[in-house]
Design a protein around this nucleic acid. Sequence first.
RNA 1: GCUCCCAUCGUCCAGCGGCCUAGGACUCCGCCCUUUCAAGGCGGCAACGCGGGUUCGAAUCCCGUUGGGAGCACCA
Length: 478
Amino acid sequence: MGLIRTALFNWAFARHNGGSLVFRIEDTDASRDSEQAYQALLDGLRWLGLDWDEGPEVGGAYGPYRQSERGHLYADIAKRLLEAGELYEAYSTPEEVAERRRAAGQDPQLGYDNHDRYLTEQQRAELREQGRTPVLRLRMPDEDVTWHDLVRGEITFQAGTVPDPVLVRGNGDPLYTLTNPVDDALMDITHVLRGEDLLPSTPRQIALYRALTRIGVTTGRPEFGHLPYVTGEGNKKLSKRDPQSNLFHHRDRGFIPEGLLNYLALLGWSIADDRDVFTVDELVQAFDIRKVSANPARFDVKKAEAINATHLRALDVADFTERMLPYLIAAGVLDPYPSDSDLETLRAIAPMVQERVTVLSEAGPLVRFLFVDEAGFEPEESASSKALTSDALPLLDAAIAALEAMSAWRTEEIENTLKDALVERLGWRPRKAFTPIRVAVTGRTVSPPLFESMEILGRERSLARLRKARERAANAAA
RNA sequence: GCUCCCAUCGUCCAGCGGCCUAGGACUCCGCCCUUUCAAGGCGGCAACGCGGGUUCGAAUCCCGUUGGGAGCACCA
């Protein structure tokens, strides 16, 4: 979810500023994992309706390049950096580094000690003769590294706290530490909005940009903005490389893109202090990266649903009906190819469903009673055991008699007839009187409005269900 | 351990020195409306982690502290 939100903010930023937009998941190994993560990201963005301008080949930005011309380009740039003294050959093994740290009474976790910076040509030759192949490390600057982060303001890493990073492996393979800034430079990336986990690697990237600038590969560097995490329950990071599992889980529950987008944007950003429902256009219109909060935000399903619900209600009914359809099919309420009459029924009930659901998957249980065939209809046990008792017998009798005598089967008449028969004549409180009727007709204690439901269900089916319920109540009495 | 980030109701956001006896939203709880459930309306519970400064005045600035998080590979 964090990845998706990062993508959303990138998108909103680019659209707001009229710039072009590139998403990258970076992986020099082009592993299956990264390919899947990348595909999942793109699929998610497509579903959300977020477009982008261009992107690297599927499979990560760097894997393919290594085997192609781009690989030579990295090698060439590395060579030039080496010749300029920005990089140096380092022969120390991790074991040797740790050993030196320990010998100096330091914590080995401090990492590389920049030891090979000071090797003489003579020493290097000797190490080479031992058959060692050097990695290439970047010489970090001796002064503090400071930048103005788009979301966090000024951030400073003290000189000497970031060890010289490896940019090229012993076997000549370029590492992410090299390829990322080089690609940004070559793609003319102006703004980098990414997760805060990349924050600690920013100083060395900035150092590299400076070196690249000095050797004339690029001028300047992008602006950085490090977005906070989205957490789940507890305070742990939510879904690292797998946006799909979460995003599509929410989609399957019946979030609509408008709702999820709105909620996600709200996580760490607000459009105004008195409003939290807005459209995607409004988001783009108002988006300001500098107003994004630096605190980690917890994904609150309840609030997400509430936002989704208001977007659901804002849909026009035809649109809502169409979007609800796949969920009803998935729930087995409707056939994959519903009949015209079923569709007509659905259109009739849709407005009442629309203001009752927070996610689309809730629609199924609400409308199921309209689509089951009569023989298969059976009220839910939990509802009927409470409502269809012997007490309900006189009520059901009166209702059936009154409804049978009715001429026009319309909501208003049904309401008047039942009120007259049950409330006026039998003296039941409305609240009590209509529960058994509701359970008899819809099978549940919670349903769309009763009289409308009965009209849509039709006279015969409604009466048949009431008679069936009466039987049950009679049995309960016996 | 080292470095860096973060710190306002349970949650998200507002607040960028006086408008704050801290505002909105979600959740929760009442009440109204009501044939159920919703929706809608009204109301309520609930927070500036702590300690020092700076200032006439601090939620807002500074320092410290505590707490949380992340990163520390010849991964990305």
